[in-house]
């Protein structure tokens, strides 16, 4: 329970921390200036895989991202990550190691009314691709009358890809230091399959059991601003 509350509070942290600027009415020129944006390139990490690990011990992952802010509205985003799965249930043992990349764009719909406010409300799209090596050293098919059947499936390497729609918030909580989260609707395009073995979890996508999946990210980023004129 404490783990859950911890992760929930992390998710909600931006709600508490994000407010920062004092409001003053801006002139038309100042408004224009405020909405010029803060172009730059930022690098960050996603804390969501660590939160996920608290709920699902069998998964462990890391994820980093790079974001190129072109202007106030448009951002190009790339996310790289790794996921390891070690599952051991009555039905099967399963291991997987894989990497993924997501690339896409974010569109900022937030119009600011104060100078120096670089907060974003983002709508975006990602294309994701993953490659993983997985195996099933044991599976057990339960049959009450005749008795259970055991078997194993060897190691294989498979690739999968998917698309994601993104809704998120991103806020500059310190100078050039951003915190944000996003909720994602993911839909699978293709799942790699080798014989009967399908991935239990696709790195970057999540559980394979659904053809669409939800995900969230919780990112901390540092932005290297481009020189201002």
């Amino acid at each position: 329970m404490s783990k859950y509350i911890l992760s929930l509070s992390l998710l909600l942290l931006p709600i508490v921390l994000v407010a920062q600027q004092q409001e003053e009415p801006l002139s038309k020129e100042e408004k224009k200036l405020a909405n010029r944006g803060n172009p730059g390139i930022s690098f960050g990490i996603d804390l969501a895989p660590f939160i996920t690990h608290l709920f699902a011990n069998e998964r462990f992952g890391v994820e980093a991202n790079a974001r190129y802010t072109i202007n106030r509205k448009w951002q190009v985003v790339s996310e790289l990550g790794y996921e390891n799965v070690d599952l051991d249930t009555d039905e099967m043992t399963y291991t997987s190691n894989g990497s993924f990349i997501r690339a896409g764009i974010d569109y900022n719909i937030f119009k600011v009314e104060e100078l120096g406010n670089n907060d974003n409300i983002l709508l975006g799209f990602r294309y994701g691709a993953a490659i993983q090596e997985h195996s099933c050293p044991r599976y057990t098919i339960k049959e009450e009358y005749w008795g259970d059947t055991n078997g194993s499936l060897g190691s294989s390497t498979v690739g999968s890809h998917w698309g994601e729609f993104v809704f998120g918030l991103r806020s500059e909580i310190l100078k050039n230091f951003y915190m944000g989260w996003s909720v994602r609707f993911k839909t699978i395009i293709n799942v790699g399959k080798d014989n009967a073995q399908e991935p239990y979890s696709i790195p970057g996508y999540g559980s394979r059991d659904r053809s669409s999946n939800m995900g969230f990210t919780y990112t901390l980023e540092y932005q290297i601003p481009f020189k201002k004129k």
Partner: peptide, 18 residues
């Protein structure tokens, strides 16, 4: 934990958050 994990990754949670 598993139920919460499934829920956090479910459509209902995302819709609610949105």
């Amino acid at each position: 934990n598993k139920i919460l994990y499934e829920f956090v990754h479910s459509e209902r949670f995302a819709i609610f958050l949105i």
